[in-house]
Design a protein around this nucleic acid. Structure first.
Lengths: 234, 234
DNA sequence: CGTGTGATTGACGCCTGTCAACGTCTGTGG
DNA sequence: CCACAGACGTTGACAGGCGTCAATCACACG
């Protein structure tokens, strides 16, 4: 399902300044360029699967990737999203464990693949790059810890409001206050950690309360302060 | 509440081979030795608090530390435990964010304090040490992701069984099959992510089903395979 | 136009949190 | 040595949030 693509040129990649590669000198960049490859993934394609050992990491050039774990009954739990400039698959490579999540494109996507060896070499050679990786994983760890608290203690209603705000922060709003990402009700439920029907019912309530407006998978945020209040973010 | 202690000598520290410092050469070890300090904490003492900016990291020499976040209503959610050989507080130092958890001794403890500067210098100087830190944070990130899945999808009953097994893995059993850690019912609830009363009721059920034996805060595991089955660990 | 996926709504009931009362134990101070 | 306070553990009653099941609708696609 992957089609080989013309590789974006790292040196002139517009998303690079947002990545862990932002502080690399041209020598290291050229090195990555010569060893990476690039692939196109259609919406729904899987980039890698939970339980497998990866052979490298992926840098998102275009599109949106959802990262999820699968529960005993087959239900997905979305852990996070990756968008252009983000790298995925690094956790399993660096900790030398099988992947703990599955990565799937929810929009047509282009990803650059960087072999594990290239990455490891870079860690040993460039302390600033190591520091970037450390910061990245520590940042994600902080987010995960916060997520644990929320799921453990907040109601589904609070969490749904919080997820709407999270999506706003991550993907932004268009000129019409509409979230720039289109998720199915089931995917929303799989972020919040609840049943699809619960999400549908709560979205209807939010709509009745004039907090949001629904147009298929497009959600318009009408009253952000009120949504904040419901989400109970301190 | 802290009393200055005679610092354990890192070079001959019996727990060092279990820490991120295990591959350091004597030069770096001596450097740490000369810049660290050491403190004694009584049961219940707080080592650092959520929201504060730390000035260094702590290496647990003796005792057990619980790391928790506090919810909007004041209820704690325990994220993990630290025991001898573990380091704590590194996430906030390395990601340059305020601490996302509070660390509290649940047993009398001795901790060595290593200033942030010492740690950062080491990262820049020693790629193997960087790699250890990366592995550590990636490992914790994997654990956190798994925890998210569990809390989001499993029942309280399943999670409690899983927590009993987790405590067994982390702290071990004595010759009498009893968990080598004594937690209050409330603390158990704060790991599982439920109400204290729920934990008490479920423990009583487990006891009635001859899975465990209760003796105050000491829990004896009678039928580990059955507990595994209940926990639904794949 | 049939088929399949996703969205919606209603009914139902159980898991689980909350509240309250009471028992137990330990350490403290008179 | 005893009384008492305070923390912790236990049990019961109760209700409501939320998951599950089932039926129906909407819509896109081959």
């Amino acid at each position: 399902m992957k089609n080989q693509e013309v590789s974006p040129v790292c040196g002139s990649c517009l998303t690079r300044h947002k990545t862990v590669f932002r502080h690399l000198f041209s020598e290291d960049i050229n090195n990555i360029m010569s060893e990476k490859s690039c692939n196109y993934y259609k919406r729904g394609n899987i980039i890698f699967s939970e339980g497998n050992r990866g052979t490298g990491i992926f840098c998102v050039h275009k599109g949106i990737i959802k990262m999820f774990k699968t529960g005993v009954d087959g239900k997905e739990q979305i852990i996070r999203f990756a968008k252009p400039g983000h790298i995925i698959g690094y956790r399993s490579i660096l900790s030398n464990e099988p992947a703990c999540t599955t990565a799937k494109a929810i929009e047509d996507a282009i990803l650059c693949f960087i072999p594990a060896k290239t990455l490891i070499n870079l860690v040993h050679k460039n302390p600033d790059f190591s520091m970037e990786l450390i910061k990245l994983s520590c940042k994600e760890l902080g987010d995960a810890n916060k997520f644990i608290l929320d799921i453990a203690q907040k109601s589904v209603r609070e969490r749904l409001a919080e997820v709407l705000l999270l999506l706003k922060e991550t993907f932004g709003l268009d000129e019409n206050s509409t979230l720039q990402v289109a998720l199915t009700r089931e995917e929303l439920a799989n972020i919040v950690g609840t049943a699809t029907e619960s999400v549908i019912r709560l979205l209807s309530e939010f709509k009745a309360d004039k907090l949001i407006e629904l147009n298929g998978r497009h959600i318009k945020l009408l009253n952000i302060p009120k949504i904040y209040k419901i989400s109970n973010i301190y």
